[in-house]
Simulated scan of single mutants.
Amino acid sequence: MIVHCAAYHDGRRIEAPEDLAGALAAARAAGPDGFVWIGLFEPTAEELDRVGQEFALHPLAVEDAVSAHQRPKVEAYKGSLFVALKTLGYHPGGHVVTVGEVMVFLGPDFVMTVRHGEDSPLGGLRAALEQDPEQLRYGPSSVLHSVCDTIVDGYMDVAAGLQTDLDELEADIFSPSRVDRDTAGRIYGYKRQVMSVRRATGPLLEPMLALERGARFVRPEAAPYLRDVADHVARVNDQVDGMDRLLSDILNANLAQVSVQQNNDMRKISAWAALAAVPTMIAGIYGMNFEHMPELHQIWGYPAVLVLMTVVCLVLHRVFKRHDWL
């Protein structure tokens, strides 16, 4: 559905009808710097088709905007520029990264944003830009830059939240008092969240560089600002790579800990089995009931065997203790 539709001239909002055709006509009548800004949230195919016909949008771009689930990209068509971006949200309590999408259609006298997903950072963007006419006077290019900048700033917030949780995970795993047995599951859960961030940020760097180098309907004055956004994307990509390596190191360390613990457990089991084997062996010998076993007929025979069992077990116990087997 259409969330907002407004016309602007020289960086300021002007009076215009609320319908698309009327707003566009008012923007064009205001002068060469006039443009209309339309915001849509999860429109149906019929709604977007009507808007596409009004602004002569390419059918393939309209189809991408309806279906969503697009890879971040920039595509130039005859009458418009199409930019697809992914939005991210992070909920530390549930350790879940949520993904949405924003598509931007840019033309000579219009800009249209199509949002999918609840975690959109664009809620207050229009009001913020209307408070800054100096920036908004660059027209659709200023809106495109602000949308990209706001979304990438959201990436940085998500990366910071993930990094904090990963630091806590690392400290917890190497804590001597930890009781969590599903450590590998937690690590793989975080790797899935990092992968979600990578899918959004990794493919975005090249489109942002393409916009910075110059694209149709993007004013040259916007190039330095888009370059700054591309730098932020590169920084986030570096953070994501670092978090992925950290998770791999944590997983390897955890597997090593598990292996060491299993070895310790096996040594303890083996040591106790050896201690139990000595009296079992001696008792087995005297349980064979041979007639010619002289010590069976001695008064000291029984206590001597008990003392022998005790001494051998104590010696083995001390040896195992010295070698940290017990």
Rank of each mutant, 00 (worst) to 15 (best):
Q70N: 12
T183P: 02
K73T: 00
R192Y: 04
E63H: 11
A27E: 04
I282A: 02
A159T: 13
N264T: 11
D119N: 11
R181I: 10
H58E: 10
R137V: 13
E118R: 15
A84I: 03
R227S: 11
P207Y: 00
V152W: 09
A210R: 15
S146V: 00
A76W: 00
S175G: 07
R235D: 09
D109V: 08
A271L: 08
H145R: 13
Q70W: 01
A223K: 14
H58K: 08
L169C: 08
L204Y: 07
S196R: 15
D64T: 03
E206N: 11
G11D: 04
H145Y: 15
G79F: 03
V143A: 05
R199K: 15
G79T: 13
T113F: 02
D64I: 02
R28D: 09
V197L: 14
N254G: 02
R12W: 07
Q262H: 08
L296C: 04
V229W: 06
I38N: 00
V307W: 03
M156P: 00
A222K: 05
Y90R: 09
F35V: 11
A26N: 06
L40I: 03
A277H: 04
I187P: 12
D241V: 13
E42F: 00
D244K: 14
A222M: 15
P176H: 04
D238Y: 11
L57C: 04
R227D: 07
M1S: 14
R115S: 13
G154S: 13
H317V: 08
C5K: 04
L81Y: 02
T150L: 07
L106E: 02
G52I: 02
K86W: 00
R198N: 11
L162H: 06
F35R: 11
G124Y: 05
A65M: 10
L81C: 07
A61Q: 04
A276Y: 01
T44C: 02
R13E: 14
R126P: 06
M288I: 14
L81G: 06
A234G: 09
R178K: 14
K191C: 07
F55I: 13
P279Y: 04
A26S: 14
H69C: 02
